[in-house]
Simulated assay, not measured.
Amino acid sequence: FQKASSTQVQTFAAILAAILLGSPELGPAMIATATAGNIQQQLNFTRSHEREADRVGIDILVNAGFDPNHMSGFFYRLQEAYRYMESNLPELLRTHPVTPNRIADSQNRARQYPQIEEKASVGFAFIQAKLRSYDHVNQARNIKRLKAKQADSQTLSAVEQYEYALLLLATGKLDAANKFANNLLDENKESAAYIALKAQIEIAMQHPDNAVSRLRQALLLFPNHPQLSTLYAQALMESGKPEMAADQIRSLILQQQKFILPSYYRLLAKAEIAAKRNSKAHIAMADYYYMIGQTRSAIEQLETALKQPDNTTFQTERIKAQLDTRKRELLETEHKADSAKHLSIDRKRQ
């Protein structure tokens, strides 16, 4: 259970960081890769462990000030959404099915806690705004809604201005997005969210040097801030300083420890390629693939890294050691998968 619990915590952290992290392209991709990695690592997660994980999840909700009944409500909505899709269920629901017993068990556990009165935070409203900006299907509708409200009342709240700016940025209306970003910064120059928004717009407007300067100052206020750090690395690359970008990402990875996102390694690989350090780029991609559960692809990247002419003796030995470890892990995973498959076949025959 300890290993499974640790994996869930890392995945939850990765998903939350993905929401907070910046660009409309990065966010959904990181959520998908974080979840994929978690699925791969939990193939042997038993039903008893699953019940224990649900119990821990409810404890986390309560300790964070949320109503524990949200757990069963979430399960119920999942069940309803996929009720008629048994042949096309996502992998997560095939290995961790949402059954009536599981819903009932979570409801019973929730009743053991006192009633909690939730209070929505301002930060949560900004997260909701960011998520709406990721909704490509309804982008035009959301822009129209905010444009109509602005025309009607002449004013938008800070959250609405933030959402509007993100939507305008996502649809390439950079000048209009920039005006909102400036207005928000005039109200609060030390908001990490507003600074990140302005930097994203500067990068999109091909003013990376301005973004570099802004983000360097911001990181003095918010050291190792994930969104600001990754944007800083992107701005450095756009400014023709890939070596500095790689150093920035490595520093972020070192500081984040258990809450590292797979996308950090993908960004690191991009910086290393730009710096013409091919071996390090392949090593970074190997770490990326390993984090999303694609061990075989990670091995291929390490084998390619081993063939690069820019390897030092120390780096060659390090790649070989990592390659041996990944190959052993792959064999163990395939062996367990084969054993589980044969056990399932035997049960069906009985």
Rank of each mutant, 00 (worst) to 15 (best):
F1T: 11
K3V: 01
A4P: 09
S6K: 06
T7W: 01
V9H: 06
A14C: 04
L16I: 11
I19W: 00
L20N: 02
L21V: 13
G22V: 06
G22M: 03
E25D: 08
P28D: 09
I31K: 00
T33R: 00
T35K: 07
A36Y: 14
A36F: 13
G37P: 06
Q41H: 11
Q42L: 03
L43Q: 04
G57E: 12
D59N: 09
I60M: 14
L61R: 03
V62T: 10
G65Y: 14
D67K: 02
N69M: 15
H70T: 08
M71C: 03
E80N: 07
E86F: 12
S87N: 07
P90L: 11
L92Q: 12
R94C: 07
R94F: 14
T99D: 03
R102Q: 13
A104K: 09
N108V: 01
G123E: 13
F124H: 10
R132E: 04
S133L: 05
D135A: 14
V137Y: 05
R145Q: 08
K147D: 13
A148L: 08
Q150M: 03
A151N: 10
S153A: 12
L156I: 00
L156F: 12
S157M: 08
A158H: 10
L167N: 02
A177F: 05
N178M: 11
A181T: 15
L184K: 00
L185N: 08
Y194L: 07
Y194A: 01
Q200M: 13
I203Y: 00
A204C: 09
H207N: 06
D209L: 10
D209C: 10
N210P: 03
R214P: 01
R214E: 09
Q217Y: 05
A218F: 09
L221E: 07
P223K: 03
P226L: 12
S229P: 02
A233D: 00
E238F: 05
S239G: 06
G240T: 01
A246H: 02
D247S: 14
R250E: 15
S251Y: 04
Q255K: 07
K258D: 14
K258W: 06
L261S: 02
S263H: 07
R266Y: 15
L267V: 04
A269H: 01
A271P: 07
E272P: 01
I273F: 15
K276A: 08
N278F: 07
N278L: 08
S279W: 01
I283K: 04
A286S: 15
D287E: 06
Q294P: 14
R296E: 12
I299D: 00
E303N: 04
F314D: 12
T316A: 11
K327F: 04
E329W: 01
E332N: 08
D338S: 11
H342Q: 09
S344T: 12
I345S: 09
D346M: 05
D346N: 15
D346Q: 06
K348G: 05
